[in-house]
Structure formats: C-alpha cells, structure tokens
Design a protein around this nucleic acid. Structure first.
Lengths: 114, 114
DNA sequence: AGGATAGTTATCCATTTGGATAACTATTTC
DNA sequence: GAAATAGTTATCCAAATGGATAACTATCCT
C-alpha cells in the first residue's frame, strides 16, 4: 500500500470529491462495471474513468477485466488507514468518542456563512 | 459549518496535504502563531498562509488576531464530520471495528510499488 | 521617531484536477 | 461478418493548487 504520508495524501484526496464518494457508496452495495458506476453521474465516460483511476490509485478500490467488462470492487479495509489517522489524533487530544458525539450533537446546527 | 457534500469535500481536501496535517498535529499540542506554524515547514510564509486558509475554510482550525499576532487553534470537533462519514460506511458494510483492525494488522505490510 | 517583528497582499508560475470530445480497440451478439 | 456494446486513449481546456518573490501594513520596542 506504500504506507507513509503520501498514502494518506492520496486517500484523502480520493475522498475529497462527491462523485468519487458516490462511487464508493455504490460499490459498498456490491461490485459494478464502469458503465454501471457512470450511470447515475451525468458525466462523460472518460471522466468517470479518471475518477476510478484516482480511487484505484488510492487503494480504496480494485478492478479486474473479464471480456469487455471491467468490474470494480471496494477494498473496505483501505479506509482503516484513515480511521487510524483519526483515532490517533483523537487519542492524543483528549476527546473521548462519546464526548465528541455529544459535542457534535450540540454544534451540528452551527453554520459558516459562505 | 455549511453541512452537505461540499463540507466533506473541503474537509478531505484540507486533510490531503502532509504539511497541513502537520499543522493540525502541531495545533493539537496547543494554539500557535503563523510564524510558529511555519517554522518547521521549509516554505515561504505566504505559502504557509494559504495552507492555513484552506484549513480554516474547512473548519478544522480557527484563528484570532491580537496585536500583530494571529493565533490559530484546532477545532477538534470538526474532525467528527469525517469520523461520522467513515462510521456510517463501516456500519452499512458489514465490518466490525475489531475485524477491521485485525485485517489491517494482517495487511499492513502490503506494498504498491511506485 | 525609527527599526525590528508579524503578518498580509498582489502577482506570478508550473502542475494537477475535473471536465469534455473524437477516435479507437476489443468483445459480444445477431 | 456487421453492428452494437464496453471500455480505452489521446487531446484539449479552464480552473484550482501549491509553491515563490516583492512590496506593503500594522504593531511592538528602544
């Protein structure tokens, strides 16, 4: 997985796009072809493919080609890298998961005007 | 916080840079001025400021200016947005936190050559 | 007041990113 | 074998990103 800072860079980068997160959610319900992944996305196919390449490079997703169909599936474990990063920070700051959730409930209505 | 997809976009984007994650770690140990944040970073000041703007726009960080010093501090709760996103996915996929950690332990030595 | 300190603004620049089209290759399918 | 299907490659383009320098403003400090 090429651990190290760049792995996190690419992982967070991959997650920073709504369309890509959408693809992740779709793949969470099972493997899918390029066309299937593209279908809800109002985007040209080559554009979809670029997103898929970003996801695959990050390690979040993997694909194999059979005949003319390339099938993508999620590498669910990959998200653990991010989870671990967050867990480490939360541990070193002194926030418990529970307190964090409580705080979140209180502040979830805050707004940054933009 | 301008919830919605774009909030996550900006959050993940903010986290996708090593220098910015370094600033977050520094701020985890307490508030700091622009110069203090810049000091370990081998980067021109204006560049550091851009990173800080990205962090502040994402909501991960906040700053106030007193005299000529602008002091940044972490908004630790902000990371909960990301945590929640991950937690939701893990819940809908059927991975338990424990299994995920175990899997991670097994696969942490994998490498993508690059 | 004058110098040092802390940050800010304005540009500039190369690279990356997210999008598109056009044209092409490989498989099925009829 | 011809047409439809699935994906790929090659370009192109505008905007965003990550970096720099130069020049400036606003506070301290003596």
């Amino acid at each position: 997985m090429l651990e190290g800072p760049q792995a996190l860079d690419r992982m967070f980068q991959a997650l920073s796009d709504q369309s890509r997160r959408g693809m992740i959610d779709r793949l969470g319900r099972g493997p899918a072809s390029v066309t299937e992944l593209a279908q809800p996305l109002d985007m040209a196919l080559p554009t979809v493919m670029k997103h898929l390449q970003v996801l695959e490079t990050s390690g979040l997703v993997q694909s194999e080609k059979a005949g003319r169909v390339r099938t993508y599936h999620l590498r669910k474990e990959a998200l653990a890298v991010v989870e671990r990063w967050i867990a480490e920070r939360k541990a070193s700051w002194n926030i418990t998961f529970d307190r964090l959730d409580l705080f979140l409930a209180d502040t979830s209505t805050e707004t940054i005007d933009e």
